[in-house]
Design a protein around this nucleic acid. Structure first.
Lengths: 208, 208
DNA sequence: TCTATCATGTAACCAGTTACATGATTTT
DNA sequence: AAAATCATGTAACTGGTTACATGATAGA
């Protein structure tokens, strides 16, 4: 069971992580996150960042260090990590690495209700999905290759490798699912079609 | 790009889906969802259900059909699907099946920041994760088998098969990652350790 | 019969997203 | 120099979760 964190938004984890390098103000954090492509892995938006920074400050994980203003720009508040913050970062990351979380991907939800679509249409949709999965795979592959070419160590791309692994597994699953529906002798298609008032199959089966 | 839905919570999709069978009141929906194990695939909690039902009604996807009270129980409002609701269900499900969504699993976030933990500790944590993944796999396998034994058609367990596929892919990935860190000649461990003030490796590499 | 748990709903709180605001740069 | 875009922050809105409330049934 995942521990209840004072600040639960994963964006906070990234903030703590970057503040280990040096104190920063929110905009600098924002820029760094975007430059490092962390926005691909951690849900980011402008408003949430400011909220999370406030929450971290209230929780004592970071402290306002100084307030500077350059020219007529709005004041920028620089935050620094506290010892409590350093500890929270370590503890939280450890938990995320060692303990798988129960999550709710959209495709799982779709699969759990997929019987509501007639099987002939489902195989078409799954075919489209396979195409999109292949496209996504190519994009990620390309991102990895061009980044490595800039001399970034592959350790900093490990999350993209993970995505590739999941994409491949999903593609394989979808292909097999299509076969389960369409297999000439044992396919689920005919039975499934009867849920939709389409022609009845030869033999009867039970449903839930 | 995913279309913007009037009601975006996936719980609403399940509600629409069950209302295709028969009109129901919220509590009955709640019970049905729990009985069918849909709560494993779609984030559920009591309060959200009532909210979602209200939203669906406001959007015109369902209508209040009648209000009954049995004994001294609170009044129960029965809702029925509208044509618009039937259409929304079809359209939404289609989209979820054919279009992969960009999502943000916790482990991806952890991987993107994992360099903040020293490599010797990471391999231990990854080892723990492998153990937990194996346990989860066994639980799901068991759930599938016992449900099939009750004569439920495997179509209604397809989302659990998908989960298995992802778990297996993740296990394989984690094993390979451990090897990448610990490989005697080419492992990332030594370089990585230098980020944490530990003994320097033989050759230099760049980081991001 | 007392206590616990179930059945059912509402309301208050909080986190996350979107929209707004405004000075500074850059482009045309 | 007008228009567009960037840099930076705040505020309002909305959706989701937690907590509260209360009658009914079942277990001890």
């Amino acid at each position: 069971m995942a521990k209840k964190r004072k600040v639960g938004n994963l964006l906070a984890l990234a903030v703590l992580s970057y503040l280990t390098r040096a104190p920063m103000h929110p905009y600098e954090l924002s820029r760094t996150l975007r430059d490092n492509d962390d926005v691909r892995s951690i849900r980011f938006n402008h408003g949430s960042l400011y909220m999370v920074v406030q929450q971290l400050a209230k929780a004592g994980f970071i402290v306002e260090q100084e307030t500077t203003r350059a020219g007529q720009r709005p004041e920028r508040t620089v935050y620094a990590l506290t010892d409590a913050g350093r500890h929270e970062l370590r503890d939280w990351l450890r938990e995320l690495v060692e303990e798988p979380q129960h999550e709710y991907p959209h495709f799982v939800a779709a699969l759990s209700l997929i019987a509501a679509i007639p099987p002939s249409e489902v195989v078409v949709l799954l075919g489209h999905r396979l195409g999109r999965l292949a496209e996504l795979r190519a994009e990620i592959r390309d991102l990895i290759d061009t980044t490595i070419a800039k001399d970034v160590h592959p350790l900093f791309l490990i999350e993209e490798e993970y995505r590739l692994a999941l994409l491949d597994a999903e593609s394989t699953f979808v292909e097999q699912f299509i076969k389960k529906i369409t297999h000439p002798k044992t396919g689920w298609g005919p039975l499934w079609a009867t849920f939709h008032g389409e022609p009845a199959p030869a033999e009867e089966r039970k449903q839930s």
